[in-house]
Amino acid sequence: MASEHNQLSRFLLVLAIVLFRYVTSDINDGNFAGNNFNRLDTEALYHLSQDQFPETYNYAPLHPVENHLWQSPENLGEISGVAVDPSGNPVIFHRGDRTWNYETFNDNAEYQEKYKGPIRNDTVLTLDPKTGDIIRGWGNHTFYLPHGIHIDNLGNIWLTDIALHQVFKYSASGIPRLILGQRFEPGNDMEHFCQPTSVAVLPNGEIVVADGYCNNRIMLFDKRGNPKYSIGEHWISLRIPHALTILPNRQVCIADRENLRIVCLDVISSGLNRNPESPYSIRHRQFGRIFGVTSYRGFIYAVNGMTSKNIQIKGFTIDPINRNVTEIWGPESLPFTMPHAIAACPYGTALYVSEIGPNKIWKFDLLQT
Rank of each mutant, 00 (worst) to 15 (best):
C345V: 01
P276D: 07
I313M: 15
F316H: 02
P90M: 05
C194K: 05
S237G: 13
G232P: 02
H141F: 14
Q286M: 05
E74G: 08
D189T: 11
E327N: 12
P64K: 09
V199A: 01
S270T: 01
D161Q: 10
P241D: 15
C264A: 10
R274V: 12
T56R: 07
H340L: 11
N215S: 13
G137H: 04
A83W: 00
I151C: 01
C194N: 13
L272A: 11
Y102P: 09
A172W: 10
F168R: 02
P129H: 04
F316M: 08
D266L: 12
N89Q: 07
V167M: 03
G88E: 12
K363S: 08
P64C: 03
E277Y: 12
H150F: 11
A255S: 00
P227Q: 02
R21M: 11
I282W: 09
W235S: 02
I361K: 00
L178W: 00
F11H: 02
F20M: 09
Q166R: 08
C253V: 07
A44N: 03
I268C: 04
Y229H: 10
I254E: 11
R239L: 07
N67Y: 14
Y46F: 09
K309E: 15
G96D: 00
P86E: 05
N359S: 10
K360S: 11
I207L: 06
N359Q: 03
L366A: 10
S3Y: 08
L367W: 04
N75E: 13
C194F: 08
M1K: 13
N106V: 02
S308N: 06
N188R: 04
E74C: 09
A60E: 08
L351A: 09
A83N: 07
T245F: 03
Y46G: 05
Y229A: 09
D133V: 15
P54A: 06
R224F: 11
P176Q: 09
N322T: 07
N140Q: 10
V65M: 13
E258T: 06
D222P: 07
I157H: 04
G155E: 01
W362A: 06
L13E: 13
W329T: 12
D365H: 12
L247H: 01
T337H: 14
N108S: 08
E258G: 01
R98F: 01
L351M: 03
S87A: 10
L272H: 08
T56F: 15
Q7N: 10
L351N: 02
R95Q: 05
K314G: 02
Q312S: 11
F184Y: 03
Y59F: 10
Q195Y: 06
L334M: 02
Q52E: 13
S171L: 06
V325Q: 07
C345F: 00
I356W: 15
E43Y: 13
N156I: 06
A243L: 01
L220R: 07
E332Q: 15
G357F: 04
V84N: 08
G139I: 00
R261D: 06
I236S: 12
E233F: 13
I179K: 13
T349R: 02
E4I: 14
S198A: 15
V325N: 08
I179E: 14
N188K: 10
S80H: 04
